[in-house]
Amino acid sequence: MLGLLLLLQVLASCLWLGHSEVVKSFVSCPQFFYSGLPPNDALNPRNPAWICQRLSNSYHYATLYDRDRRIPVYSAYKYRPGAGKRPDVAWLLEPQLIGENDLKEMTSEMTLMYNHKFTLDQIKDSQAIPGDYTQLKGLDRGHLCPSGHLETILSMAATFTQTNIVPQDRILNNGKWNTYESDTMPEMTKGCKNTFVVTGAVPGNTYVSNGRVNKPSHIWSAACCVVDKNPTKAWGIIAENDKNEVQNMTLGELEERLTELYNATVTLFGTACPRQ
């Protein structure tokens, strides 16, 4: 009888874990990584959260989030730009970072406070909030997964969550980084059936919003082009987060640069995508 009760408890625990999209892997959304393989553990922060970004019962991209620094480490997605305009939506939050609850999808700060009775302090403890970005000088909300790289209005709206943005230099965000996102990517991806992208931020030594949110030292992005199920080319870029300059490089060069910055060997797409 005792053995049966223990078995039932284990099964109940497994079922409860199935309700959360913030788990210890991207098991619910491997489709955003080439061959289902995310970057290696070299990028993992001390207190990570693996988020399958979910809105309206659909997954749109994946994010590794740093709970302590309150910024994403990277967001991974398939490059599928649509014709729609940038949506005008409220900034969303990830309720699953707030202790134990069964809320599966990103939602607004107001909904969390008034419908689900979370306090603002509870929310702020787990992640950055919209108020952390309202008084920043010379910095923008920098999307790691940009709305313009996704196809549907719903997917675009899903990029407007605090777990997908970092404090990014305003001139860089509106300048060379925007040129890469808007002009370079369409050129580089011509002929690709699928393009897998990982865009990340290297933690910096300074914080904003009264020490709550880390300002990254660098912003980077890597892409792997797939034709007929085979990766045919790959590339990367990196930018210091206080200059309007973007360095274009091979995937291998980007991994080597990140290896230096993280002081650990970084691989972004395993060994399948061309590094040269």
Rank of each mutant, 00 (worst) to 15 (best):
F26C: 15
W235R: 07
I129T: 00
L268N: 06
T195K: 12
P95E: 08
G175Q: 03
D125C: 05
S108T: 03
N178W: 04
H60N: 00
A12N: 11
N47Q: 13
E151T: 09
E256S: 15
A42P: 06
E181W: 14
T111A: 08
L103T: 05
V23Y: 12
P274S: 10
I238H: 08
V202N: 07
F26A: 11
L37A: 12
R141D: 05
T259M: 00
A42V: 14
F160R: 01
L136A: 03
P95K: 07
L7K: 12
K78N: 15
N248Q: 15
K137F: 10
F196R: 13
N205A: 12
R67P: 04
Y59C: 03
P186Y: 11
L55N: 08
C192W: 08
D140K: 01
S155T: 08
V27A: 13
V202M: 08
P30F: 11
K215L: 05
Y133A: 03
P45W: 05
K78W: 13
M113Q: 03
E181K: 15
L17F: 06
S126M: 05
I219R: 08
M188F: 13
A157E: 02
S108E: 01
F196M: 09
M113H: 00
G138S: 05
P30R: 11
P38T: 10
L136T: 07
D169M: 13
W235T: 01
C273A: 04
G36C: 01
G138Q: 09
Y207H: 12
Y61I: 02
